[in-house]
Simulated assay, not measured.
Amino acid sequence: MTPGLALMLGGLALIDSTSFGTLLIPVWLLLTPGRLRAGRVAVYLGTVAAFYFCVGVLLTLGADAALLAARALVADVPATTLKIGQLALGVAVIAASYWLEARARRQEGEPGKVQRWRVKAMTGSGSTGALMSLALLAALLEVATMLPYLAAVGLIADADLGWQLSGVTIAGYCLVMTLPAIVLAVARLAAHRRVEPLLQKINDWLTRNTARVLGWTVGGIGIAITLNAVARLLLEP
C-alpha cells in the first residue's frame, strides 16, 4: 500500500461519505425529535458499511479475472486506438453525469419506499428489520452510480495487495465512508441543542444539492479520464 494509493482511496471515500445513503439518511435519523436512539443509527450505518464491504469483496474477486481478460483482449490493439477509446469513454462518462443529474432532479420529491421508510425511521415506529431494509434499499439504489466507490475497488484490485490486505483496505474504505455520519451522531449525543442547527443546515443543503453533487462527482471522473487520454495522445509516442 503506497501513500499515494492511500491518499486517493481516502479522497474517494470522503466523496462517497456525502451521498444520499451515507449522510443524508443518517442526518434524518439524527434529526428525530427527543432522545437519540443511538442503536438505530448504528444498525443503519452498520448495514450500509457491511453491504458495501461485501460488494467490494465480490467486485475485487472478479476484478482480477476481468483485468486479465481485458488485457488479453486488447493485447494486439494499437496503442492509439486504446487512447482514442479512453477519450470516448471519458466523454461518455461526462455525458452520463448530465443524464444522472437530470434524472435525480426529476425524482426529487417523488413519494416512494425511501420516503415512507424515512418517516418510520424518524418516528421510531419502524422495526430494526425495516431500518436495515431502508439501509439496503438506499445502498442498492446508489451502488451503480457511486463511481468513486467503483473506481476505488478498481484501484485496490489493480494494486495486487493480496486478499487479506485488500479486505482490510475495503473495510477501512467503508469505515471512512460512514465516518462523517458517526462523528455527527457522537456530536448529537454529546451536545444535542448545539448540534441540531448544524444538522438542519446539512439536511437542507444535501436535500437541495444531492442531484448536483452526483452530477459533479460523475462528471469529474469523466473529465479526469478525458484529460488523461488527451495527455497520452499528445505526449506519448
Rank of each mutant, 00 (worst) to 15 (best):
L89N: 03
V55W: 00
Y44L: 07
W99P: 03
V27M: 04
V74R: 05
R208C: 09
M146K: 03
I170Y: 00
M132R: 15
A66K: 01
D160R: 10
R106V: 13
G219K: 08
A69R: 12
L59W: 11
L36K: 09
R193G: 04
L235F: 12
G85K: 03
V43P: 07
A75E: 12
N228M: 13
V77T: 14
V55G: 04
L147W: 12
M132P: 05
Y149C: 01
A211H: 15
R103H: 11
A79W: 08
N203P: 08
Y52P: 02
V218W: 13
L131E: 14
S127R: 09
P197R: 05
K201E: 04
M8K: 14
T22Y: 06
A13T: 03
G112N: 08
A187N: 01
V153M: 15
R194Y: 06
L233E: 09
D158C: 00
W99N: 06
E236P: 01
G109V: 12
R105Y: 11
G172P: 07
F20H: 14
T80H: 13
A185L: 01
V195S: 03
T80K: 09
L82I: 12
A66I: 13
I94Y: 11
L134N: 11
A190Q: 06
R118I: 10
L140T: 14
S17A: 15
A72C: 08
S133H: 06
T123V: 02
A65Q: 10
L136H: 01
L7M: 12
A96T: 08
T22I: 03
F20W: 08
K83I: 05
E236A: 04
G109T: 15
A135F: 09
I170T: 02
L227T: 10
L198I: 13
M177Y: 00
G109C: 12
G172M: 06
A92R: 05
F53L: 15
L179E: 00
G222Q: 07
G109L: 14
A72Y: 04
A96Q: 07
N228C: 13
A181C: 14
L30I: 13
R37T: 10
T81D: 08
G215L: 13
E142F: 00
G4Q: 09
V119S: 11
L29M: 14
G85M: 10
E101Y: 10
V43G: 09
A187Y: 02
K113C: 10
C54A: 15
Q164H: 07
G215M: 11
W163D: 07
L131F: 13
G167S: 09
L68Q: 08
L36W: 07
A211E: 14
A50R: 02
L141F: 11
L9W: 00
A66V: 12
T123S: 13
L161W: 00
W99M: 14
T47F: 04
M146F: 04
R71I: 05
V55K: 00
A102R: 15
W28K: 04
M177R: 08
R35N: 07
S166K: 05
R208M: 06
L150R: 09
L87F: 12
T22A: 13
M146A: 10
T226L: 09
L199T: 01
G90D: 08
R103I: 07
L147D: 05
L23E: 03
L100H: 10
T2L: 06
A190F: 01
C54R: 11
E101K: 15
V153Y: 02
N228S: 11
S125N: 15
G34A: 00
E101G: 07
A159Y: 04
A181P: 10
A13R: 01
A135R: 13
